[in-house]
Computed example of a mutant assay.
Amino acid sequence: RLQRIGQADGLTYVNDSISTTPHASLAALECFAGHRIALLVGGHDRGLDWTDFVQHMAHDMPPVEIVTMGSNGPRIHAMLQPLADAGRFGLHAAADLPDAMSLARRALGEQGGVVLLSPGAPSYGAYRDYVARGRHFAELAGFDPDTISAIPGIGIA
């Protein structure tokens, strides 16, 4: 959970690909309260209810930007659209993870912040598992996925 994979160009990249429920994404956001966050959400649609997530975005301090993706991306996007229209946060729909990363970087811009992959949904369809999705995120952020997958001190690489 919440693996800080590194910093580049004023952005901190955090891999929370293991987040497969909307409530897990909310918990990840709480950990970065006070930071400028671009949140990447969405993945395999298994029919989970995103109502609590949306309500938190209406009442709590939301991220600067939310980028939706995956098969449930359009459903999440539609639920968030009224809040984005009211100016609570920026909202974009991405075709895939590379597109989501590009949108997140652009949204945070030169002011910097945290690009947080906490999708709240499984990776099925696009990736073999959450590990593969996290490794791709690291690669897109410019880091060696083999290095970030290692667990120092116990010989797992």
Rank of each mutant, 00 (worst) to 15 (best):
L91E: 03
P98I: 10
L48H: 11
A86P: 13
L80S: 07
M57P: 13
Q81N: 11
D85Y: 00
D96T: 01
D49I: 07
D99R: 05
D45R: 03
G73Y: 00
D49K: 11
E65D: 08
P74E: 03
D85P: 01
D99E: 05
H56Q: 15
R75F: 08
A78Q: 14
A58M: 03
G87Q: 13
G47V: 11
N72P: 04
I66G: 05
V54D: 07
M69G: 00
H59S: 12
A84V: 03
I76P: 00
I66N: 09
P63R: 10
R75H: 11
L91T: 03
I66T: 08
P98Y: 04
G90L: 10
A95I: 10
Q81A: 13
V64N: 08
Q81G: 06
H44R: 09
P62N: 04
P62Q: 02
H56N: 12
P98W: 06
A100V: 00
A100C: 02
D99L: 05
L83I: 13
T68W: 12
D96V: 04
H44V: 00
W50L: 01
P63T: 11
M101F: 01
A86G: 06
R88S: 02
I66F: 08
I66M: 09
R75T: 13
D52W: 14
V54H: 06
I76H: 02
G47S: 10
P82A: 05
Q55S: 11
E65R: 15
H92Y: 15
V64P: 10
L83N: 10
Q55D: 12
T51E: 14
A84C: 01
A84N: 04
P82L: 07
P62H: 04
Q81P: 03
A84W: 00
V67W: 04
